[in-house]
Write a protein that binds this DNA or RNA. Structure first.
Length: 578
RNA sequence: GCACCCGUAGCUCAGUUGGAUAGAGCAUCGGAUUUCUAAUCCGGCGGUCAUAGGUUCGAAUCCUAUCGGGUGCACCA
């Protein structure tokens, strides 16, 4: 089903062509104020100006608007079309037409949303944990936002390739392996349960112990030359770390699996060719002993791709990964969910890859940057002692706080139900708090705010969804049969407000895909929930007589399914009861 | 010094390609429950959209400058 904006746009474009003989974007938008109707076309003002310049005659925008309306054919769609202000064309949709459209949406398992016309192959690079380190709050935004985008793009019909660029290579593995060897030689049970302290221990020994340092360096050489014993130790570290983060992914409901991992080590063999090719292309040059690309000019910061003593850097790996993604994976769009602090780095990497000719025309490279997560004191989020906050602890606390709320509120549910709801609410709240803010700005993390039952929060949306489901449970209890109606009747202003919003879902998903900003979907779902609440307070469903009852059941069915799909696309659970 | 991001109500945040009178939530004040979940809803209060220019029929949105905050800037990732 074509979106309403697209339909109006086509009709208006045609009318402008017929009336004025020009091709122009009708500038359709959703009206901000209900008194101006549902949609508006804002092209008349601009057209009056351009036509005046062409013909040399003065034209009145309102007259232009009249001419357009005279040729406009909207069929059953509109109840009225009017001109207001300087030349706005306001369209009020017909309730009958809208009711029919909603009924059609109800027949579709995609709620009437067509997949995109030309699906793209999209690589999404997100999460990127480090080996031998625990996931900490710094990984949250990349993981959560990336996963939501993967879900939305997939739903839209794109072929999405998830890429988890894990930090599994580099000089730090020398000391980690040396520490591992010593521990096993001592007969100490190797338990990487506390990854953080293992890492800290290795680092401390590296700094204090010269002999250890020497062996660590030898290990790096051995690892890079493919020594089997060293590789085995390395694999063990990777494996143990995966055992730590994979359950957290599962707990978060994140789609990433070990098959999605293309860590730094994966590109190891591609690094030397990257440098060689850039040199051959005349892009890379020797500078102060290192090999660098002066992509922004000779006086600007270069992108260093090889160290003076030999050895590659993360820029080299990123270039190799990018080339792999466009040449081997044939990505048409590559998306990086990485901290905003690295925007200069990505700018340089993208520019270098393009200049080297590795990026086919039309391929889009996007750094979906995000800001820092702050504590309520406005400083970067940390534990009370000021240390790095572990993701697991954060989720535990959220779940614990949610459990306290559920215990207070949902009295007549079983303990098992309460437990499940606490998980859905706690984890959902953390995720939603992150997703509902524009990713580019820093955001303040607050348990109290995200778990509040009022305002733009996960529990509010989950509650709205549970309330709709509850009506269907009551219907069943009372023996009221429901089959989706072929027409939905819209009389009350609350029904109309809800209906209008339901028809806009597809357009919001387009916006999210284009801007890579899930917060638009959050705002949409919150707005939908408040409109539902208004309807719920004012329009009885089960107590109404037929055919209103079935019509309203259809309307709330669509509401529940929209909420449910929307939350699915955000990766947030929605229990049927709370 | 150079570059990027941000600045909207007391606080936390929205504001589609520039559109009509800038919106929510929290806080605060007042109201609604014999009716499908009150974990809710309705109303009041609250704004120089950092500042000054410019572009435009029209600017929170685009351009320039200034102020304020954050971040990055040669061999860590």
């Amino acid at each position: 089903m074509q979106s309403i904006t697209a339909q109006l746009s086509a009709s208006f474009r045609q009318a402008i062509q017929t009336a004025l003989g020009v091709e122009a974007d009708p500038l359709i938008s959703v009206s901000q104020n209900p008194k101006f109707g549902d949609y508006q076309a804002n092209a008349a003002m601009g057209l009056a100006k351009t036509l005046a310049q062409q013909t040399g005659q003065k034209t009145n925008p309102r007259q232009i608007a009249e001419q357009i309306i005279a040729k406009l054919e909207l069929g059953e769609m509109a109840e009225s079309v009017s001109i207001a202000g300087p030349g706005f064309i306001n369209v009020k949709l017909s309730a009958g037409w809208m009711g029919q459209r909603l009924a059609q949406m109800l027949q579709s398992d995609r709620l009437g949303i067509d997949p995109v016309e030309s699906p793209q192959k999209v690589v999404v690079d997100y999460s990127a944990p480090n080996i031998a380190k625990e996931l900490h709050v710094g990984h949250l935004r990349s993981t959560i936002i990336g996963d939501a985008l993967v879900r939305v793009l997939s739903f839209q019909g794109d072929e999405v390739i998830r890429q988890n660029h894990i930090g599994d290579w580099g000089t730090q593995f020398g000391m980690l392996i040396a520490n591992l060897q010593d521990l096993s030689a001592q007969g100490t049970r190797i338990d990487l349960k506390d990854l953080e302290s293992f890492y800290v221990q290795a680092k401390k020994r590296f700094e204090d112990d010269e002999d250890f340092q020497k062996r660590a360096r030898q290990n790096v050489v051995k690892l890079q030359s493919g020594d089997p014993a060293t590789l085995k130790d390395w694999q063990m570290l990777v494996h143990k770390t995966r055992e730590h983060y994979q359950p957290i992914y599962q707990r978060l409901g994140v789609l990433l699996t070990p098959e999605d991992e293309r860590g730094e080590s994966f590109y190891n063999d591609m690094l030397a060719p990257v440098v060689a090719d850039l040199k051959a292309a005349g892009l890379a040059e020797q500078s102060q002993g290192a090999t660098a690309v002066f992509i922004d000019g000779p006086d600007k910061t270069p992108l260093i791709i090889e160290k003076s003593g030999g050895g590659y850097l993360y820029a080299t790996t990123d270039l190799a990964a990018l080339r792999y993604r466009t040449s081997t994976l044939h990505a048409q769009r590559v998306i990086y969910l990485v901290d905003a602090r690295q925007s200069q780095h990505f700018q340089q990497v993208f520019a270098t890859a393009r200049k080297a000719g590795w990026i086919p025309a039309g391929v889009s490279l996007e750094h979906a940057a995000f800001g820092t997560m702050l504590g309520e004191d406005g400083r970067p989020f940390a534990t009370r002692k000021g240390g790095t906050a572990k993701l697991k602890d954060l989720l535990d606390e959220a779940q614990q706080r949610a459990a306290a709320v559920v215990t207070n509120k949902s009295i007549d549910l079983s303990d098992e139900q309460k437990h499940q709801i606490a998980i859905a609410v706690g984890i959902g709240a953390v995720k939603y708090a992150d997703l509902s803010k524009d990713r580019i700005s820093d955001y303040v993390f607050s348990f109290d705010k995200m778990l509040s039952l009022d305002g733009n929060t996960a529990p509010y949306l989950q509650y709205a969804h549970a309330r709709v489901r509850s009506i269907f449970r009551r219907a069943e209890e009372r023996g009221i049969a429901y089959t989706p109606p072929s027409q939905i009747q819209l009389d009350s202003p609350h029904e109309l407000a809800l209906a209008q919003h339901l028809t806009r879902f597809g357009e919001v998903l387009e916006l999210v895909s284009r801007e890579l900003k899930p917060h638009h979907l959050c705002s949409y779902l919150y707005d939908l929930s408040t409109r539902f609440s208004g309807f719920f307070e004012n329009c009885p469903v089960l107590q109404s007589d037929e055919p209103v009852r079935t019509s309203r059941l259809g309307l709330i069915d669509l509401t529940a399914r929209t909420l449910s799909l929307g939350l699915d696309l955000l990766g947030i659970e929605h229990p049927p009861q709370m």
